[in-house]
């Protein structure tokens, strides 16, 4: 149970970073921390005590397997996360070229 809680704490750490930091790179790092905590959460969901990798060969009728589906989900989510992070970084680099700063207080032309 502690591991689940730690995972959730890591999610909140990321959220705190996104909400309080003023540097666009640090905001992106906060988002990445949130994402990684979710990946760990998925890995924990599939975990079974003393389970082994679910490869079915002979004489494995009574052994315990870990759940393979969350692992497949995490792999897909990592690829999506790569795309998101690459997009965030590309925009951050372009923003730096236009404004010469990473501070969001100085990059505030739009008032949504």
């Amino acid at each position: 149970m502690t591991t689940y809680l730690l995972c959730f704490v890591l999610f909140l750490v990321g959220l705190f970073g996104v909400l309080t930091k003023r540097n666009i790179i640090k905001i992106a790092i906060g988002l990445i921390i949130m994402e990684l905590s979710l990946f760990m959460f998925f890995a924990l969901i599939g975990y079974v005590d003393n389970g082994i990798a679910p490869i079915i060969v002979e004489k494995t009728e009574n052994t315990k397997f870990v759940d393979p589906l969350p692992q497949a989900i995490v792999l897909t989510a990592i690829v999506i996360g790569l795309a998101t992070t690459a997009m965030l970084m590309a925009i951050a680099i372009r923003l730096y070229k236009k404004y010469n700063t990473f501070d969001i207080r100085k990059i505030a032309n739009l008032k949504g």
Binding site: F11, L88, K98, A108, L110, G112
Partner: peptide
């Protein structure tokens, strides 16, 4: 351009947050 990049960054940060909420829910 300046404003477009800023709008896109804002959109991305909030969009990523919402995606993470949805992914947490799926978990």
């Amino acid at each position: 351009e300046k404003e477009k990049l800023e709008a896109s960054y804002k959109y991305q940060v909030l969009g990523c947050l919402s995606s993470f909420f949805i992914l947490l829910n799926i978990g």
